[in-house]
Amino acid sequence: MPSLIAVLAFAAGAFWLEAPGLIRRKLTKELVVFILFLLAGTAFYAALVLEVRLPNLFQIIKLVYRIDA
């Protein structure tokens, strides 16, 4: 649980760091993209600390490129 709180706090910190500047300069598209990426990053990081099994991207390469995989 403390790890999850740390991840959420980190994401909140990143939002606090970036979002005000984007809002002030009226960069709406940039803000939307930032929020989407931050949500994805936070969700995956939360999944990692909660020990949810995440896809191993190297295994995908192995599946695609190895004939005897």
Binding site: E18, L27, F34, L38, G41, A47, L48
Partner: peptide, 20 residues
């Protein structure tokens, strides 16, 4: 601009490095 992508992309890289 691209600066705002740095932290979320860093998080994704970190997660998939550990998972991979």
């Amino acid at each position: 601009e691209s600066r705002m992508l740095t932290i979320p992309l860093g998080m994704l890289l970190l997660v998939f490095t550990i998972a991979g």
